[in-house]
């Protein structure tokens, strides 16, 4: 086994939570809602998932608990933002601050506990192939589900009637309303669905990726996922690409540290954050390009009949 196959495998695993959260936030933003609560939602979901995994030893119930927690928190956010027309940025920040506090508080009994789930994963037969086996086919099922989800979302958004309605709500809520679609309900449904995905991402982090609960363990991935939606110009396939890119940066940084490169670890740890900034700068350089791709009603409240 060489080092490269393990690096590829680790990249896929590290990119997966970013991809799931990024896809969820993409769903939110496609209907016109920016969810700055992602970081807090992922933290609460991470602790809910971890607690469920400790109690039930089931990863899938943990993902479910994460999705439930994420959905509930985004329900609060969605209700405030969509029905009470509160400022989306302020509300999202409030959810993030609340989630950070709540997860730190609720997670205290789980600090330092280890999970006993896990074990062998992968696709039979393919996993035993040389090189590509360990690199690609020994992943947790969630890794493959994420890829399928991106494909499904891409298809649903651009090739189905439902996707057309969702996009219409995000591009021009007034037109969608005039056509008789319940704009606010569609927005709320999308916000809750997106929040549930962020929740699954949080649970994946604490249950599969680390698998530990540490206070503040999401460490900015919610914000990086938000940046991913811009990077991907709101297209699911590019979210996947961006997520693996960031997963790669994270892994490369750990890899370099382990191989004894003489750079202080703190500077290595800055890499994901600095590359997020770099990517944002590169992609936003041309404002026209962003404006063409961004859902036109992003961040703007809509009151039917007003």
């Amino acid at each position: 086994m060489s080092g490269l196959d393990l690096l590829v495998a680790a990249t896929l695993s590290a990119g997966t939570p970013l991809a799931i959260a990024g896809l969820g936030l993409l769903v939110n933003e496609r209907v016109g809602v920016v969810n700055l609560g992602a970081e807090g939602i992922m933290l609460v979901a991470a602790v809910s998932g971890f607690a469920t995994a400790v109690a039930t030893h089931s990863e899938w119930l943990a993902f479910g608990a994460g999705a439930l927690a994420g959905g509930l928190l985004s329900l609060v956010l969605g209700w405030l933002v969509i029905w009470l027309n509160t400022n989306q940025y302020a509300t999202g920040l409030a959810v993030s601050i609340f989630g950070t506090g709540l997860s730190a508080f609720a997670g205290i009994p789980f600090v330092g506990r280890r999970l006993t789930t896990g074990g062998h994963h992968g696709i039979p037969w393919l996993r035993d192939l040389p090189f590509v086996g360990p690199a690609l086919f020994r992943q947790h099922p969630m890794v493959y589900l994420t890829i399928a989800l991106a494909a499904l979302l891409g298809f649903a958004l651009h090739r189905t009637r439902l996707g057309l309605v969702v996009r219409a709500v995000g591009e021009s809520p007034a037109s969608a309303h005039a056509l008789g679609y319940p704009v606010r309900r569609i927005r709320l449904a999308a916000v809750v669905a997106g929040g549930a995905l962020c929740g699954v991402a949080g649970a994946y982090l604490s249950v599969v990726y680390t698998p530990l609960w540490v206070e503040g363990m999401v460490s900015g991935r919610g914000w990086i996922a938000l940046a991913l939606t811009v990077f991907a110009t709101w297209r699911p396939a590019r979210i996947l690409l961006g997520a693996y890119l960031f997963g790669g940066v994270t892994m490369l940084q750990l890899h370099l540290q382990a191989s004894g490169v003489q750079v202080p670890p703190q500077f290595m740890a800055m890499l994901p954050y600095l590359s997020t900034v770099g990517v944002l700068v590169l992609i936003s350089r041309n404002p026209l390009w962003i404006r063409l791709n961004m859902p036109a009603s992003l961040g703007k409240p809509f009151t039917p009949g007003a």
Partner: peptide, 9 residues
């Protein structure tokens, strides 16, 4: 932290 978030919400 919880109280801060609740207050703002």
């Amino acid at each position: 932290g919880v109280f801060q978030g609740v207050l703002l919400l």
